[in-house]
Design a binder for these strands. Structure first.
Ligand code: FES
Ligand code: FES
Lengths: 156, 156
DNA sequence: CTTGACTCGGACACAATGAGTCCGAGTAGA
DNA sequence: TCTACTCGGACTCATTGTGTCCGAGTCAAG
């Protein structure tokens, strides 16, 4: 039950990108957070594959959000980086062993798997309810000038 | 975001133990599910350390539930086997880099970490709402004689 | 148009965690 | 007393995540 550590980086990068008005290179984002630029590139590639951010190559290229910030949920970023598969996977062990449940009684999923699925859906719903725009709003809620400072540092 | 595969085994074992009226050895549970007895022993040890099941050694020993089945939640088993630490861990990268947020502005946790925490709590709440007794009830809801068959096989 | 430098993209090693196995200490019964 | 059976922790191997690297492609400037 351990989530990829790059999720934190990706989410912070998404919030930062929502404040930028032009493409930002991966190296710039890396030194902004003081993390490995090579590894951050991998996370950004994952986001790019998922269609959340758009990559521009060549001189003055970089990454920018592909959609408005209020159209990208936290769940989107998490699933892009960490994988969309549910944490719990049922192996159907109830159909194995001497007292195996007959297949005709397994029309519905195992109660245990159902419980896990419900919990997983609740988790996903909580993440889907928050967008990148909400996060940016909450970050810059107290100090609104940090927004402009950040934008200036990105373009410099 | 991958949960330990032994969680499924441990939960099924907990349901089975709720039907037993005497200690059941780990080997018996292993051949019942057709899984590695050595590895299942590790999961049962974790449950024992967490105080969910009680171990009896020696001849005619084995495992039995330490509490009534309706007092053991699914979350208890999951945390015992997979660890109680939350999946997302904040590294406080906002306090690093050239535009680091000053510590006096970090009195409250990062909005991203807060969102993750809310989602984690929702997940845990969903798992805490279901007990082992509920699972057993749901399993034996349709075919009530399977309960007695299982109990007979355990004592044999 | 040429050149150049800058960007992403995927392919390549290393390390940590989980999966699986094993044998010894301890105990209840015969 | 003796035996046989049980758990408990220590050990090894495989898988996945972490971190790094260099080449293909591209845009801007001169
Ligand atoms: S058989 Fe997979 S959870 Fe019950
Ligand atoms: S600093 Fe850890 S989630 Fe924002």
């Amino acid at each position: 039950m351990k989530m990829s550590g790059g999720v934190e980086w990706a989410l912070h990068c998404a919030v930062v990108l929502s404040a930028a008005d032009r493409p930002v290179p991966a190296v710039r984002l890396a030194e902004l957070h003081d993390v490995s630029s090579s590894y951050l590139a991998k996370q950004l590639q994952a986001l790019s594959r998922a269609g959340l951010i758009r990559a521009a190559q060549g001189h003055a290229g970089g990454y920018e959000l592909a959609r408005p910030a209020d159209g990208i949920t936290v769940l989107d970023v998490v699933e892009a980086v960490d994988g969309a598969q549910p944490a719990f996977t049922c192996t159907e062990i109830r159909q194995r062993g001497p007292l195996a449940t007959p297949p005709e009684a397994c029309l519905r999923p195992c109660p245990i798997a159902r419980t896990m699925s419900v919990a997983d859906q609740a988790w996903r719903a909580a993440l889907r309810a928050v967008t990148v725009a909400d996060l940016a709003q909450e970050v810059t809620g107290d100090n609104t000038d940090a927004f402009t400072v950040l934008r200036g540092w990105l373009t410099a």
